[in-house]
């Protein structure tokens, strides 16, 4: 077991709005951490602080044993180059709610783009690995299609393959099925379950309670920028201790 992510006393504000209040969190290798909670509770912001899409206001974020951000009252406590940030963030793959595939590139081009430009993998090698990933998500026959020609579920599976192409150690999922038609949710969750079985460290912000319960190794309930409850999925779903967790689960289940 190794520590993959360390979050210490992290606060994040947008102007005067406090979105994250003193968050502490550790994620171990191989964990599937599910973050649930009402919208506006700071789930996505927390996730985005982990790969530097948002910059924390104060606290500390470490990826493995590398310091990504350390701030006190918005002031950096150390100097970090853009290059170093990119290097650290390359360890984290991210899947977005709205897929964010590159519309001007075909499926296979989407997957190999960053491996070639960032990781400098030779093109043929990148294509071979990309095709392997496409096979894994069941879309090898769509390699030359543009994203616009794919369904939402297919786009999201390509997005997962694109993130995996960078060979990340950790995968972040930001509500990966929230923008999908109900009948397309299953195919995306199936790919995510496969990843979990293969031992990938995953942090999943989700409203899919079934997934959290079945695949999650730990669940965090966030509310108003704080972690108000944390535990094994069975504990949280069958026997929530916090009043706010109870109220939330009652509404959603």
């Amino acid at each position: 077991m190794g520590k993959m992510i360390t979050v210490e006393n992290v606060c994040k504000s947008f102007g005067t709005l406090e979105v994250l209040k003193n968050i502490n969190l550790e994620v171990q290798k191989g964990e599937v951490l599910c973050i649930i909670g009402p919208s506006g509770s700071g789930k996505s912001t927390l996730l985005r602080c982990l790969n530097h899409l948002e910059v924390i206001t104060s606290g500390k974020v470490m990826i493995e044993d590398e310091l990504l951000a350390e701030k006190v009252n918005g002031k950096d406590q150390f100097k970090i180059s853009h290059k170093k940030v990119s290097e650290i963030c390359a360890e984290l793959g991210m899947v977005f709610q709205r897929f964010n595939l590159f519309p001007h590139l075909t499926t296979i081009q989407n997957i190999i783009e960053a491996t070639i430009t960032v990781k400098k993998v030779p093109k043929q090698e990148a294509i071979n690995y990309g095709m392997e990933l496409l096979k894994m998500v069941g879309l090898e026959d769509k390699k030359d299609e543009y994203p616009v020609r794919l369904s939402g579920g297919q786009q999201q599976r390509v997005a997962i393959a694109r993130a995996l192409a960078m060979k990340p150690k950790i995968m972040l999922f930001d509500e990966p099925t929230s923008a999908l038609d109900p009948e397309l949710v299953g195919e995306v969750l199936e790919v995510m379950k496969q990843l979990a079985r293969d031992g990938m460290t995953m942090i999943v912000v989700t409203h899919e309670m079934g997934f959290a319960r079945e695949v999650g190794t730990r669940v965090i309930f966030m509310d108003k920028g704080e972690i108000s409850e944390e535990g094994l999925p069975d504990e949280i779903f069958s026997n929530p201790k916090n009043e706010r967790t109870k109220a939330f689960l009652q509404k959603i289940l």
């Binding site: 964010n100 590159f102 519309p103 001007h104 960053a114 960032v118």
Partner: peptide
């Protein structure tokens, strides 16, 4: 979201502009 996706993949601002944003 395009810039965010590019950054999440480890691209620098310049790479993201050249390869992703400007071509679109």
């Amino acid at each position: 979201g395009q810039m965010e996706a590019a950054k999440a993949l480890g691209m620098s601002y310049g790479q993201a502009m050249r390869r992703i944003i400007v071509p679109q």
